[in-house]
């Protein structure tokens, strides 16, 4: 038997990656990439601005958030002493807005992280195992999802009272099914990939396959969705405050500020307008970032 002739000398190799920028930290490169999309850049700037202001609130806020300036009550509209004016109790609006950014910027992302963790696990299990585990998880998620969110909050918060932790808990529980649904959909697709089969064939555990082989490839849509969810969480936190079942007073809460003052709109519209503008800008920031991330994701 003649030996097979080997003609393997001509094996081409791709040129080295030219796009790699040396000497830069990963996050710097990521940030640079974000700049390629204008919506992402604008959105991120808005969010970062609010984060900075919230962190620095004790330093930059001109007044204590709950301090009443009774002298200002005669003249609540914007002035040199109170740049954005005061509310009906004579509290400086600028200071209250700055302090009010803090709870929102903690609660909304925390709840999203919780929902992402819980939802990813549920979605991975539902998508990877299929069969009855998948059916049970999917049905349970459907039930939670079918319940109108705001009514669910009302019921739960009315019973357990309102606190930051309760809001985080409720937001986590109600957003997790949405994340789970997304991750399940991606898992159903990704588990059929050949690299998953290859992992099985070398004897990887199911947990490894789900967490190391599948989840990282679902991160694109997941990050976009987490961004959107953070925006929606800000809206819901505001709405809860507006309905009077949000964070307990007197600490400033953007939604609660609107609730207290929108009845006086005919006289002092600025009192409601200022917190409304604040909350809207923050949500716009998150949603623009989501639009930009999706754009960038599609481009690659």
């Amino acid at each position: 038997m003649s030996t097979p002739v080997t003609t393997v000398e001509a094996l081409p190799v791709s040129p080295p990656v030219a796009t790699r920028v040396r000497g830069r930290a990963l996050w710097q490169r990521r940030l640079r990439a974000l700049g390629a999309s204008r919506p992402a850049a604008i959105g991120l700037s808005i969010i970062l601005a609010w984060v900075v202001l919230a962190v620095l609130a004790p330093l930059v806020a001109p007044y204590r958030p709950n301090a009443n300036d009774l002298a200002a009550l005669a003249h609540t509209t914007p002035s040199k002493a109170h740049w954005l004016g005061t509310d009906h109790l004579g509290r400086d609006l600028l200071s209250r807005i700055l302090w009010g950014a803090r709870p929102v910027l903690v609660i909304a992302p925390l709840a999203v992280l919780g929902a992402a963790a819980l939802g990813s696990l549920l979605g991975l299990a539902a998508g990877y195992y299929g069969r009855w585990i998948g059916i049970v998880i999917t049905r349970a998620c459907d039930i939670v999802l079918s319940f109108p969110v705001i009514i669910l909050y009302m019921i739960i918060l009315a019973h357990f009272g309102s606190s930051a932790w309760n809001i985080i808990g409720v937001l986590t529980l109600t957003k997790a099914p949405i994340i789970a649904r997304i991750v399940r959909g991606m898992t159903l697709d990704l588990r059929e990939r050949e690299y998953v089969t290859a992992a099985k064939m070398r004897g990887e555990s199911s947990l490894y396959i789900m967490l190391v082989e599948i989840l990282p490839n679902a991160r694109g849509p997941l990050v976009v969705d987490m961004c959107l969810r953070t925006g929606y969480n800000v809206i819901i936190i505001g709405a809860l405050g507006f309905l009077g079942i949000g964070l307990p007073p007197p600490d400033p809460d953007w939604g609660g500020m609107v609730k207290d003052t929108y009845g006086m709109m005919m006289v002092w519209p600025h009192m409601a307008l200022v917190p409304c503008a604040a909350i809207s800008s923050l949500v716009v920031g998150f949603n623009l970032l989501a639009v930009g991330l999706r754009e960038l994701g599609l481009r690659d």
Binding site: G238, A239, C276, A277, V284, N287
Partner: peptide, 20 residues
């Protein structure tokens, strides 16, 4: 994107301050 980002109560306040 922007309209969907404004909470309903804020939209209400914005519209009311203009039209009311």
């Amino acid at each position: 994107t922007v309209v969907a980002s404004i909470p309903e109560f804020a939209l209400g306040v914005f519209l009311a301050s203009v039209f009311v």
